[in-house]
Simulated assay, not measured.
Amino acid sequence: MDALTLLKGRNSAARLCKPAPDDSALAEIFAAASRAPDHGRLRPWRFLLVRGDALVKLGDLFASAAKQRDPDLSEDDCQRFRQQPLRAPLILIVIARLEKHPKVPIIEQQISAACAAHGAMLAAEALGYAGIWRTGVNAFDQRVHSGLGLVHNEEISGFLYLGTRDGQAKPLPVMSQADFMKEWR
């Protein structure tokens, strides 16, 4: 698949099944992610790989954090949080590592981490896999951050749910350039 076809055709897959990218595919995915724009070569990102039994452990962390946010949360709602990571056979948690720098503002570091995430998503698609980038309340919950071992200068850019597309891709609307582009003169 050529790059433009990939870029113009990729879309999110909410329904994922096995197989997930194997270690060889993951090496390719991480190699692509590492080419993200990166002012100052700070590499202001890292990835946590979650698969197998760790998906259940992540679900328990999500449920525990939800219960702490809302002590009146029903058991059904707690179970919904436990099930979230089980929507895919593999999750890459994208973590932005943010440092004060004289030439690279925090926003550029956050954007660089987001570009690394996008590169990972595109590489997965190029390798025949599919995924969806999720955030939600767990991406911003300090209890989740602590449970995942994040430190004070780290934040979650997203949870990349990866696997094989289950069903057909949802057609995306074609956007006209006039909807988002205007020439400045």
Rank of each mutant, 00 (worst) to 15 (best):
L6N: 12
E28S: 15
S34K: 07
W133S: 08
G131R: 05
V104S: 03
F30E: 03
V94E: 10
A3R: 01
G9A: 12
G40S: 00
L4E: 08
L55C: 04
L26D: 01
L92Q: 11
K57M: 09
Q68L: 15
D77T: 14
R80C: 00
A65D: 01
S74T: 02
D38V: 02
T5K: 14
F47S: 08
A96H: 04
A114C: 01
H118N: 06
C17E: 12
A88P: 10
A120K: 01
F47Q: 07
L61T: 09
P44H: 02
D2E: 15
A114Q: 01
L90T: 05
D22G: 10
R69N: 10
R82Y: 00
A32P: 07
L73D: 06
D70V: 06
K18W: 13
E28Y: 14
V56A: 08
T135H: 06
G128M: 07
A88K: 07
D2S: 14
K8P: 11
L90M: 05
H101V: 08
R35A: 00
A126I: 03
V94H: 08
S64W: 12
V94M: 12
K67Q: 12
L49M: 13
D76I: 12
A117V: 01
R82E: 03
K67I: 11
G59I: 01
R134P: 03
P102L: 14
A25T: 08
D76F: 11
L49F: 13
A114P: 00
A66C: 00
A96L: 04
M1R: 15
R134E: 07
Q68D: 11
C17V: 14
P44L: 00
L49I: 15
I107D: 13
I95T: 14
D60K: 13
Q68V: 15
E99G: 09
V50K: 10
D77G: 04
D72T: 10
P85G: 05
L48N: 13
T5G: 13
E125V: 03
P89F: 04
A124S: 05
W45N: 04
R69E: 04
A130N: 02
R51L: 07
D70M: 10
D22M: 09
R51I: 11
D22K: 11
G128P: 02
M121T: 06
G131Y: 13
A33Q: 01
F30A: 05
I107M: 13
L92T: 02
P44D: 02
A66M: 02
F62W: 10
A25I: 13
L90V: 08
D72G: 10
Q84V: 10
S34I: 03
S112I: 02
I95L: 11
D77W: 11
G9S: 14
A25E: 13
E125M: 04
E125T: 01
P21R: 02
L61M: 15
F81R: 03
A33W: 05
I111D: 00
Q109P: 09
K103N: 13
L86I: 08
L58E: 07
A120C: 08
R15F: 15
K100L: 14
L86Q: 13
W133C: 05
I132S: 10
R41K: 06
G128L: 04
A31G: 07
L49Q: 14
I107P: 02
R82C: 00
P105I: 05
L16T: 07
P37N: 10
A54E: 03
D2I: 15
D60V: 14
L92M: 12
